[in-house]
Write a protein that binds this DNA or RNA. Structure first.
Lengths: 135, 135
DNA sequence: GAGTTAATGATAACATACTCTCGTTATCGC
DNA sequence: GCGATAACGAGAGTATGTTATCATTAACTC
């Protein structure tokens, strides 16, 4: 028996739902929770179900197209894989999470003797441009 | 009716359990989950119950003696209030969390225009001294 | 187009962390 | 000590986020 020629994307049918879930991340370009994906996705597919969003997000993570982003005290969010190394900002008012680009200094000096650094994660909190109080 | 004179510590009886929960934080000196507190506490009070730990941790947080520490992807931990500003290191192997002392530079530069920074949080991941692979 | 079958989505089930209940135990004031 | 009552702790209950079920819908093959 010869293997079937090029199983296209693991034999998945390219449904509107699957396309929309991926498109939401492409368009919004910040880490999104499953409920945020549902909310944006329903603007295109109004009857989109939460189970379908969970299903596709799980698959996209499994395929390495999405990366989970855990922020303190909140639900898991997801963002497109392959972005340059970056940090995150969470608004204390609207709770949206934004990407921050750039590097910080002095991290190595914090490390106790014998400890080995493998990953660093900086999370800033405050008011985003939409929520910052006006004077 | 005259108010009772000086309700000592909100009329709470100083039981062994309450004493032990606080003492664990004093002794271990790193952020602890409720289960870690239970584990250490049972070395002193073997029949210590999880409900009692939750109860006292909740009260100590309410009194401002403990501060919750949320690290990505994990359970809530708690640490003594009043420590100098610091960051955290989590071991990818034993999952223990340690305090890091010192400051980092360049955080302000990451912030997009109009965003207002109110709190920063740096979490380092890697192997702690006990878990780092030997050559 | 018609039949086949994967995908959907409403809802039930599950997992986990946490809180409540209530009979028992320990501490208090006297 | 002794009675009153706060605290304990085993286990039930709750809340929330995620997965499984299954009848229905939609995409594919021919």
């Amino acid at each position: 028996m010869i293997a079937p020629s090029l199983p296209s994307c693991a034999d998945r049918r390219p449904t509107r739902q699957r396309t929309v879930v991926r498109a939401v991340f492409e368009e919004i370009r910040r880490p999104l929770s499953v409920f945020e994906v549902l909310e944006f996705g329903r603007r295109v597919v109004p009857r989109l179900g939460i189970a379908t969003v969970y299903r596709h997000v799980r698959e996209l993570v499994g395929e390495g197209q999405l990366i989970p982003v855990w922020l303190p005290g909140g639900v898991v969010r997801y963002e497109l894989a392959g972005l340059a190394r970056h940090h995150h900002f969470q608004c204390v008012q609207c709770h949206r999470v934004f990407d921050l680009h750039g590097a910080i200094l002095g991290v190595e000096q914090l490390l106790p003797r014998q400890f080995r650094l493998e990953r660093q994660e900086l999370i800033l909190h405050g008011h985003c441009a939409d929520c910052v109080p006006q004077d």
